[in-house]
Design a protein around this nucleic acid. Sequence first.
RNA 1: GCUCCCUUCGUCUAGUGGCCUAGGACAUUGCCCUCUCAAGGCAAGUACACGAGUUCGAAUCUCGUAGGGAGCGCCA
Length: 465
Amino acid sequence: MTVRTRFAPSPTGYLHIGGVRTALFCWLYARRFKGTFVLRIEDTDRERSTGEAIQQILDGMKWVGLDHDEGPFYQTQRFDRYKAVLESMLDQGTAYRCYCSKDELEQMRTAQTARGEKPRYDGRCRNRTSAPAGAPFVVRFKNPLDGEIVVEDVVHGPVVFKNAELDDLIIARSDGTPTYNFCVVVDDMDMRITHVIRGDDHLNNTPRQMNMLIALQSPPPVYAHLPMILGSDGAKLSKRHGAVSVLQYRDEGFLPEALLNYLVRLGWSHGDQEIFSRQQMLELFDIVDVNKSASAFNGEKLAWLNQQHIMRAQPARIVEPLKWHLQQLGVTADSDAQLELIVLAQRERAKTIKEMAANSVFFFKAPAAYDEKAVRKHVNAEIVALLRELSGRLSTLTPWSAEAIHESINAFAVQMGQSLGKLAQPIRLAVTGGAVSPPIDATLAILGQQQALARIAAACDAWSA
RNA sequence: GCUCCCUUCGUCUAGUGGCCUAGGACAUUGCCCUCUCAAGGCAAGUACACGAGUUCGAAUCUCGUAGGGAGCGCCA
């Protein structure tokens, strides 16, 4: 039997972290076992589903690189099929028409709640023989009255439900449209899904779905209910901490591989290993290693992982996103070769590509001003004189490489009886305007001889005035 | 309220009866390295929710308690 998994978001909002984690586990499991990953859009709620949300989900999935083999399938395009299954269930007596009004149901529920019972449908239309002519009705699934149904969940182990606890759920509304739990069952059956991997907020739906599958004489799939992801405060994920569109992480300068690495470690681990490439996740992931408890989202660890991935990536990999972030800051960079050098120089001092871009603007724009506090600390007349002299030497330096620059400055410092630090900081101020940058030799090398010398000269002039 | 699920450092986790005076990672603090900032290295503090039981021995098994979460819609 080949593995078939599915990710089935409902397009009522953007694709967020929780959704991506679910998708990731489905995708990983399918890929790991050479199976098929199906994407299905659950858009039966026409009120809340939007085309924009669908596009967002597709874009998000694409960005993180979770590619599907089949789909996307849309439930709204399968209504005929649902209708057919509905009819056959009615015919076979595994479903029945219920004529109870919403008011009647509401009364029933309040009465039950008042008695301290779980609100549920009491099955009063279950054995109805006469149908009120022309009255509106819903269709309910005829759930078994007694016995037990056990969900053999891969992450939770066996979970037992008494059928008596389950009521007859509505599978078609009075307007004839099918409801979620029913569509899921028909879809999973039709799409021959072998492993249903989803959030554990669905665990309570599972026994009903299994009962329907049994009624349809279709063997239930394997279930794996994933623990939830909580916000950083331990409460439900909200916009404050993570429940934003996954695409926002792209815009904040995160690498998709870092995000996936972070997410895969929420509820899953492989010994003490923290950093996983996409390839390693694929080789090591198994749903049976997933743990049961919910986990809190931690942005700091995500940021750390992001930096780790930035540092490990081929510099060329970072060039495109870096360009994009620079563009956002009004800088157009065209030399990929130079950008690769910038990545090399900056990657251990930026947690995100956005931050890297912000730290790198000076390579493209001469400083408009100099950090006053730093100038006071590092610059005086003597230093300016030294810089002018050093500048003269650097003007004849060839090749203009980091090594050569380092040697030249070092030799000059020794000759003048100065420490390298005494000289490096003022040079840094002159060329960047601030007190922080990559090593001064690399910084000057990337800047280019002409630009570096021009900036030093300009600074000396400014500081002499 | 009822049903179901969950419970190891602040956070993510290792751990499946003796290797645990509980390991790793993020974060925090200190030190080292050092031209700045980082990165890196080293070190420190911090956890088995609680209570019974089983056992020679329990973070690991059982039961109870507490706390947290989910579900109980003509939403998905």
